[in-house]
């Protein structure tokens, strides 16, 4: 055993704590842009914590889900940005 799995859980807990900040920004953000920035940060943090949890549980499935989540959240961000620009034409 090179490293205790507990370390990975602590890192994931830290990420969960940082998610609170981005939730705060999503709740407060005066403009829609601020909320989208919060959402984007939240997505990155979720992907990072999925990678860490994959190592903690020794499950490759977590990483696969993280890849798909990263790509799909990117598409989601693009859609919201496109909508904000005013026009889906």
């Amino acid at each position: 055993m090179i490293i205790e799995p507990l370390v990975f859980f602590i890192v994931a807990a830290c990420f969960a704590f940082f998610v609170m900040f981005s939730l705060l920004r999503i709740g407060l953000g005066p403009t829609v842009g601020d909320r989208v920035v919060g959402l984007d940060t939240l997505n990155t943090l979720v992907v990072a914590s999925m990678i860490v949890l994959g190592a903690a549980f020794d499950q490759v499935v977590f990483i696969d889900v993280a890849i798909i989540y990263a790509l799909l959240s990117f598409v989601g961000t693009l859609y919201i940005a496109r909508y904000l620009e005013g026009g889906l034409n």
Binding site: V32, V36, D40, I51, I63, A70, T77, A81, L84, E85
Partner: peptide
């Protein structure tokens, strides 16, 4: 996953910045 993250993150932030400016 890391490559996906490195490519999509800055691109997504452009999209948000441009959308914010145009809105």
């Amino acid at each position: 996953a890391l490559i996906a993250l490195l490519v999509t993150n800055p691109t997504g932030s452009h999209a948000i910045a441009r959308a914010a400016y145009r809105s």
